[in-house]
Simulated assay, not measured.
Amino acid sequence: MPNKINIIFVCLGNICRSPLADGLMLHHLKERGLTDHFHIDSAGTYAGHAGSRADERMRQTAKKHGVELLSIARQFTVEDFDHFNYIVVMDDSNYQNVIRMTRSESDRSKVFKLRTYDNHQSNKDVEDPYYGGMQGFENCFDVVDESVNNFLNDLVQQNNL
């Protein structure tokens, strides 16, 4: 299928929130039989974790909910604007970091916060669970799952899938 919908999820280190969003989107696409219509990736605005798997606590949390996180951390690059239709960031800081890299209004129009798709369209940050306890990972899972599902529902409707 030549015209795939290309989505990249972006957080700081690409080891907690964006790999979760990546994994949840892939999980929901598989459940709905829509994987052939999409290309999903994730990246971080910070390169310090490049080459690493998702944080063990995030993988544990996802696994508990039947979701496998397979992504390998990498840094977001300017070239990603050329490859992705949607650049979905997790918080204001990531938003600003990505926006600073834009080259055009077209690039800029692709960038938005994931929580514009939560049930309240709150546009809040997806809180980073990295420095907290396991409850923070559970909370992150719930927020990201809700937002990813709503985003996918919107894409399915827009694209008549």
Rank of each mutant, 00 (worst) to 15 (best):
L114M: 09
L20M: 06
A50D: 12
L26S: 12
V143G: 10
T61F: 12
C11K: 03
G13Y: 02
L29T: 14
F9S: 03
I40A: 01
L70E: 15
T35N: 12
V126C: 04
Y131V: 15
Y130R: 04
F84G: 02
R115Y: 02
M25R: 03
N85F: 03
V98E: 00
Y130G: 09
N149E: 12
V143I: 14
I72W: 11
N149A: 11
F76I: 04
A50I: 07
N159D: 11
D91M: 01
P2Q: 10
R74Y: 06
G48N: 09
L70N: 15
K4T: 10
N153I: 08
T61L: 11
E127K: 13
Q121I: 09
D107S: 04
G13R: 00
P19V: 03
Q135P: 15
D107P: 04
M25G: 06
S18H: 08
L26C: 13
G23F: 02
D107Y: 04
Y95W: 03
L69Y: 05
D142M: 11
Q121A: 15
A50T: 13
K30W: 12
G48V: 07
D36Y: 13
N6F: 01
N97H: 03
M58Q: 07
Y117Q: 05
S122R: 09
G33E: 10
D41K: 02
F81K: 09
G132Y: 15
F151T: 08
T116S: 00
H49A: 14
M58S: 09
L70A: 15
L20V: 00
Y130K: 07
D125Q: 05
F112E: 01
L26I: 12
N160Y: 08
V88M: 01
S109C: 03
N123S: 13
K64I: 05
P129I: 12
R103T: 04
G23M: 02
P2N: 12
Y46T: 06
Q60I: 13
L34N: 11
I99Y: 08
V78A: 10
G23P: 06
Y86Q: 06
I99P: 06
V10K: 00
N6A: 05
A47E: 11
D41H: 06
G13F: 02
F9L: 05
G44R: 00
N97A: 03
A21S: 15
A47V: 08
N149D: 12
N123V: 05
A62Y: 08
R59H: 07
L34R: 10
A62I: 07
T35M: 14
F9Q: 05
P129L: 10
M58K: 05
N123H: 11
D118C: 07
L69V: 08
I99K: 07
G136F: 15
D125M: 02
S147N: 09
Q96Y: 01
H28D: 08
C11R: 02
A54K: 00
L69P: 07
M90K: 05
H37Y: 15
E31I: 15
K64A: 11
F9T: 04
G13D: 01
L20C: 00
L26Y: 13
D80A: 05
A50P: 10
A73F: 06
R108V: 00
E146P: 12
I15M: 04
N159I: 10
D36P: 11
Y86C: 04
T102F: 02
C11E: 04
P129G: 11
I40R: 01
M134V: 13
C11Y: 01
N85H: 14
K64T: 09
K30P: 14
Q75T: 10
N94W: 00
R53D: 12
K4N: 07
D82W: 11
E79V: 09
S147C: 10
G66L: 06
